[in-house]
Design a protein around this nucleic acid. Sequence first.
DNA 1: TGCCCGCCGATTGTCAACAGAAAACGATCT
DNA 2: AGATCGTTTTCTGTTGACAATCGGCGGGCA
Lengths: 241, 241
Amino acid sequence: MSDGPIPGLERRAGSGGPTGQHATKLDRSMHTGWVAGLLREAIVEGRLAPGAGLVELRLAEQLEVSRGPVRNALGVLEGEGLVRTLRNGRTVVVGFGPGDLDDLTSVRLELETGAIERGIRLAADPRPVQAAFAAIEDEGASTRRLVDLDLAFHRSLVELAGSRFLLQAWLALAPVIHTVITIGNRRLGERDPERNFARILAAHRPLVEAIAAADAPRAVALLATQFEVTTSMFAARESAP
Amino acid sequence: MSDGPIPGLERRAGSGGPTGQHATKLDRSMHTGWVAGLLREAIVEGRLAPGAGLVELRLAEQLEVSRGPVRNALGVLEGEGLVRTLRNGRTVVVGFGPGDLDDLTSVRLELETGAIERGIRLAADPRPVQAAFAAIEDEGASTRRLVDLDLAFHRSLVELAGSRFLLQAWLALAPVIHTVITIGNRRLGERDPERNFARILAAHRPLVEAIAAADAPRAVALLATQFEVTTSMFAARESAP
DNA sequence: TGCCCGCCGATTGTCAACAGAAAACGATCT
DNA sequence: AGATCGTTTTCTGTTGACAATCGGCGGGCA
């Protein structure tokens, strides 16, 4: 494999190191979670090309930690479906083709549709969804956080159903969804972030209202429309770069 | 925490040790995968009670490996949702309540129903499903392998759709499904294994036929019926032990 | 020239040991 | 007696080192 440091991993994120401050929430631990977060971010933002090999020792010395945390981080990334270990133990970044986008979108649609229907049927509290939308509104067009907030919004949709396992299934897809949203948002938003932001708001607001009104059919239809619009925009950009 | 070895983990499974033979399929490695498999088996079969604490050092010396593989194995199990690490790092076995059964079943129904519909719409090859059913038929009433084969059957249903991410979402639930099937099969099957076996066959055969005939509505209805029967039997046993 | 075999570097899997934090325990004080 | 504080013990997180394995490279041979 080629020498030199791996691009897009200058360990600048966070503070000056893993011992910075917060213990990365629920991940395995400080170093492990930090490395996993860094790697995940690099992958979902496309800085790590699909197929690129991740060598434990190189990552370790580049990030100035031992191989242990790196190893564990690769393990959680593998569990998230972002990397894949060949049967020789070599770890590579997984790639996503155009067909995968349709596939992922359809699965998301199915899961989130079911969640909304169940949530409304159970008269779930819509306020978390409203709060998640408000967070998007308040953020502005800052692309970086926007992705996280968009993902959090859709997570709140899934959580409407109050189903532990539905959430678990969706969570298994979350990193990949993050990848797709990030790449798509960058393509759509780097020219005109404000317009992209307005588009997102326009797509989400009616959905929030429909959910607050407990209008399940309308909410589901709006969700489907939102996904269709997104994928078609992707496809347009994809075919004519 | 109480002393002594953890019950139900006598490292008998497989050969005499991790260096036995095959490198546990696609898991992380020999020892890691072996430990993860052992632990997973113990959890899904109920030998490890929910809430039980898993101490790395104790597991390590009990299984005669170092803490490294044990640690990685616990990471894998955590990714599968079978254990949970508290914010102090302590790892405990997660528990499932009666409500979780309904929840899990409904999510499974949704996923597998969608898979069947998509698979039939795409004119997917039904032979893997038939093969999985044949494997169940050939096995007989041996409860142990029956669970694996039942799970493999349902996995083949999901694979009908040819959707990478639908499979990933379902796979995220697979260990938990395994747990439920195992516990349920034991309760239902320990009195009269033959009868339980016949019940499984009777529930699966029409489903296979409907899929082979590309009759999506009938297949979906049969799947729903199968799940309803199972859950109601569970509930009956649950309320009157 | 083309193919096969053995060597060598690179990389992973594993292990034992160290430092820090959290929990459990007991003693002391009120 | 009950609560509180300090000590001890347990357990995790991390590190560096060792052994085994895989891939690639060059030399030898037909």
